[in-house]
Write a protein that binds this DNA or RNA. Structure first.
Lengths: 184, 184
DNA sequence: GTCTATATTCCGATAGAC
DNA sequence: GTCTATCGGAATATAGAC
């Protein structure tokens, strides 16, 4: 894969998660890369093509994360998931699902479909981790794993979002509360 | 206040929470109202002016909610807050904070400032309700009220968002879990 | 005071150069 | 295969009509 193509994907991902999908233009990317705006159209004819490939790249990283420590303790696996949000937090970005969710109904159908797949996989991953942790005694919680997973994910997703508005470090506290809640 | 002005505010609020701030244009509003796009500029010269007034209207409704049942039981007051999210849920909308959060860094500074004020007030309101409920024995939770409030708010805010992607009724389950978690 | 006609800028996208 | 010149249309916004 050419450097330019990779740079476009990377910059696009940053722009979506910093400012929003509908808030950035191809010029924001071409300007930084020192090429013409239309060069982006060679790699990604339509803006929705770019969106789809960015979503797939994220999905791909999620799958790697899933494979990397399959047999580790549940707490460690959960912390690995949370760490991906922490990285976003440090970069003042929201997560990709959160970024797209607010603009979901303005997106092309094929982009929406791509997002559905990833969202389902994230939910599945966290559910499995929580279920495993509950079974082996690492975690304690009342809800069924599927629901508790959704509660944890919403804490993380919206934690990144709200922090930008309040300006306070809500995310770090949320992150710690999630672990404490599950393990005590 | 003229009907037109009120209609613009109402339609703008819907569009922001359905499709996103950067995804709608003045033409989306003028088309529905049967006026020219530029007529909107009479009432709200810049798009950011419209945003600010929409945010203030929401803030105003929040204050009314706050005043309306000051001395009611904490559970009832919390349910009144949750009900505002439930209304959004029925209309396939996200909440205003969630809608703007993802695009926050693309917004004018004065819009950002307006959002900060409202976000702080929402957090304050929920914190007070939880603290009161804990003190009088209605609620049970380990975290300090300020943190628990943030956990509840993130559940609600992101619940609305994720549901659009998954297509499942996550929100209703989340809503019930919040109450159950606090009261049992 | 309320709105329309119009200007200007910018966007996503196509056709074609190298 | 990679990128530039350019188009058509849509966006926000202004100036001025009623």
């Amino acid at each position: 894969m050419s450097d330019t193509r990779q740079d476009i994907l990377s910059l696009g991902d940053s722009l979506i998660r910093q400012r929003g999908y509908n808030a950035f233009s191809y010029q924001d990317i071409s300007g930084k890369l020192g090429i013409k705006n239309a060069a982006i159209h060679y790699y990604f004819p339509k803006k929705s093509d770019l969106a789809i490939h960015i979503i797939r790249a994220t999905h791909s990283r999620l799958s790697s994360l899933e494979d990397s420590n399959k047999s580790a303790p549940a707490l460690q696996r959960l912390k690995a998931v949370i760490e991906t949000y922490t990285v976003s937090h440090k970069e003042n970005k929201v997560c990709l699902m959160g970024a797209f969710a607010s603009e979901f109904f303005s997106l092309d159908e094929n982009v929406q479909q791509e997002l559905r797949t990833v969202a389902a996989d994230i939910h599945k991953l966290v559910t499995t981790i929580l279920a495993d942790g509950k079974k082996n005694g690492e975690f304690r919680f009342k809800e069924v794993p599927k629901v508790k997973a959704m509660l944890v994910i919403t804490n993380l997703l919206a934690g990144l979002q709200i922090e930008r508005i309040t300006g306070k470090d809500e995310f770090t506290v949320i992150q710690q509360s999630i672990i404490k809640d599950l393990t005590t």
